[in-house]
């Protein structure tokens, strides 16, 4: 194996991207809206395409505005279809995001003749190519993707730090949030906008499918390992970094064992987060399969609670 500065940058970019996704992802998972990340990551496509067609550039600012608008529209349309169509959230999301995604693909195809907005890249990303596109800052050539993902990570951190208690409350008990004057709708749309922006930043590096793994899998892993919100955010971020690093390493090494060339790093990063989830599920200290198996006694004199009655 031949580790270069390129590889380091790929890991850094992947890690920044994964952490930026994992933080808002925690709140998606807790609100039982994991698939909303899926919906938004697909539905931002027409926003990107329209932003491109209008401005003619792939500059970041119009792209982010386009994505934020598309993300908000996805959340709004989903809400409307739920309300007026009287269908559940999953069905409403299915209607909205497939439609928007299809429109996005059409628009990209329309524009594909004279631009390099490539549907394959949109789906899978091209993290291996990100170190080629650098910006010189303070004598250091930093990949643009790392900067963009880093900036989004900072925005997400600031957002969660500022609205930590509001996000916690509206995820746990939206009715109480409403009665206390913290509009759960407002917080919902704010979070969805953030997810849309995060998704776009992640787009270029990991594409619109693997971004879902980054939004959902590390938070789900963290939830298996802790029962407090703040540690959950920390563990999710750690799992995200671990997945990015081991994922890239595995992409370089593992195919060699079978006589293949290296494989796509973003895919391996998603696979690595899946593996971490599996490990947490098996070996988690309290809720892990092994721990529960070891703890099982002749009788269970534990206090009866809803969860326990549900699982036993």
């Amino acid at each position: 194996m031949n580790w270069t500065a390129f590889d380091t940058w790929i890991v850094v970019t992947g890690a920044l991207c994964a952490v930026a996704c994992a933080l808002p992802g925690c709140f998606l998972v807790l609100r039982k809206m994991s698939m909303m990340g899926d919906a938004i990551s697909h539905a931002v496509l027409p926003g990107l395409a329209i932003a491109f067609l209008v401005t003619g550039t792939r500059a970041s600012v119009p792209m982010f505005v386009g994505a934020a608008v598309a993300g908000l529209l996805t959340a709004l349309f989903t809400q409307w279809i739920m309300r007026f169509g009287n269908v559940d959230r999953g069905a409403a999301m299915g209607i909205v995001f497939t439609t928007l995604f299809a429109i996005g693909l059409l628009l990209i195809r329309r524009a594909a003749d004279h631009v390099d907005l490539d549907p394959d890249c949109v789906l899978y990303g091209a993290i291996e190519l990100t170190p080629l596109d650098t910006l010189g800052i303070g004598g250091l050539d930093i990949p643009r993707a790392a900067l963009v993902n880093g900036a989004v990570l900072l925005v997400n951190l600031a957002f969660i730090a500022a609205l930590y208690k509001e996000l916690k409350l509206s995820a746990f008990d939206p009715d109480l949030a409403g009665t206390l004057g913290f509009s759960p709708q407002f917080l919902h749309y704010l979070l969805m906008t953030l997810v849309a922006v995060t998704t776009v930043a992640a787009f270029e590096s990991v594409g619109s499918i693997i971004v879902i793994a980054m939004l959902i899998v590390p938070p789900a892993t963290a939830l298996l390992l802790t029962r407090r919100l703040l540690p959950m955010l920390g563990i999710a971020a750690t799992a995200a970094v671990l997945a990015a690093a081991t994922g890239h390493l595995a992409a370089l090494v593992v195919p060699g064992w079978f006589g293949f060339q290296s494989t796509t790093s973003s895919g391996m990063m998603a696979f690595a987060s899946g593996l971490l989830f599996l490990l947490a599920w098996l070996f988690g200290p309290e809720q892990g399969v092994v721990a529960r198996w070891l703890r099982r006694g002749p009788v269970e004199p534990e206090p009866l609670s809803q969860t326990q009655t549900k699982t036993t």
């Binding site: 609205l163 746990f172 008990d173 913290f182 029962r227 407090r228």
Partner: peptide, 29 residues
């Protein structure tokens, strides 16, 4: 039954939510 009791908070966290309106936006407990 209106809330998810698997939510990662402890009893004290939930009770402290009763103070959120007094605290207002952005301020910590």
């Amino acid at each position: 039954e209106s809330v998810d009791w698997d939510f990662p908070v402890n009893a004290l966290d939930v009770v402290a939510m009763g103070a959120y309106r007094r605290l207002g936006w952005f301020r910590r407990v």
